[in-house]
């Protein structure tokens, strides 16, 4: 059994997404390993972002099951029992399981704890860097209610809670080397800093699974090396599993434990970076040749 199949944090089963007559994703199944970095790659228009939007609740899939587990993966019988009930979440022997396709988008983030970033950066540009990180901790800060009296009257219990949130924000700002820009508007930061800040913002919400949509887009080689380091530290130090879409092969091959390849809405390969790199279908997808011409191409590029 492959490492990501032993204890998957997210099990995608037979996911399909249709927009009218267009089938963007068709019958895609894969596993995201707990504590691993999983990359989804594929040519433009392969359906990567659609898969992401289904996982993070922004789209309701036309068909399929997205089972996210806290603690440990549920046994197949537990999962089937939940699927049959029509409910969205259940406690299991070793934690909890959420069927993401049944949750509204804000619940995917708040209850199932799936964080995400966007292909085109979506920071709150008119708010400061620190404010951005505090908005991310909204769920933790409003546990006692959206208009809790303690917060309205600024009682000590509230001030402690807020101080803890600021502390977490400061820790993250130090990790992404932006502590000196904490009071500046987020929209004033350079592009690379905005990318890192968006990741820090998603992490401040303390997700168990972090989904990154092309985190290295537009970064220079030095910045993408720093990004690699940051993502590995998120995997190792924060015990957060990472799922990313990426075109930058230095990032994909450098840090991924597991790579899933999509083409025309179908999965064409699934394995370790080395396996995927040498998979003839992947090469064909990227270089655009007929299946029977793959061998010739392989010989040509020397794999």
């Amino acid at each position: 059994m492959r490492p990501w199949e032993q204890d998957p944090i997210l099990a995608v089963d037979r996911l399909s997404m249709r927009f009218g007559g267009l089938v963007a994703v068709s019958d895609v199944s894969f596993r995201v390993g707990r504590g691993q970095v999983t990359a989804v790659i594929g040519p433009n228009g392969a359906g990567k972002t659609t898969v992401f939007n289904c996982i993070t609740g922004f789209y309701k899939p036309s068909a399929g099951r997205l089972a996210l587990s806290h603690g440990a993966a549920p046994s197949p019988s537990e999962l089937d029992a939940l699927t049959r009930t029509g409910r969205a979440a259940a406690r299991t022997r070793k934690g909890g399981v959420f069927l993401l396709e049944r949750l509204p988008d804000h619940k995917v983030a708040s209850a199932a704890r799936v964080g995400r970033t966007f292909q085109n950066i979506r920071l709150f540009s008119g708010m400061t860097v620190l404010e951005n990180l505090l908005v991310a901790q909204h769920m933790g800060l409003t546990e006692t209610g959206l208009l809790s009296p303690a917060a309205l009257l600024n009682l000590p219990s509230w001030r402690r809670r807020e101080a803890a949130a600021v502390e977490r924000a400061k820790t993250w700002l130090e990790r992404i080397h932006l502590i000196h820009r904490a009071d500046d508007p987020a929209g004033d930061l350079p592009y690379g800093d905005q990318r890192r800040l968006e990741i820090a913002r998603a992490m401040c919400a303390q997700p168990v699974l972090l989904c990154l949509d092309e985190p290295a887009a537009g970064l220079n080689p030095r910045e993408s090396a720093a990004l690699n380091e940051l993502l590995l530290s998120i995997r190792d130090a924060d015990a957060t599993s990472v799922l990313l879409i990426e075109h930058d092969m230095s990032v994909v091959m450098g840090i991924s434990d597991h790579v899933v390849v999509l083409e025309y809405g179908r999965k064409i390969a699934d394995g370790t970076p080395e396996e995927v790199r040498t998979d003839p279908r992947v090469i064909a997808a990227y270089l655009g040749v007929e299946e029977d011409a793959v061998e010739a191409i392989e010989a040509e590029v020397g794999v």
Binding site: T56, G57, F58, D105, H106, K107, A109, S110, A111, G115, R116, F118, R122, L123, F124, S125, G126, M127, V135, A136, H138, M139, R201, A202, A205
Partner: peptide
């Protein structure tokens, strides 16, 4: 934050 970007708000669980 909602005034700035509603989609980002939803991605943060708001």
């Amino acid at each position: 934050a909602l005034r700035e970007d509603e989609i980002a708000c939803r991605s943060l669980g708001i």
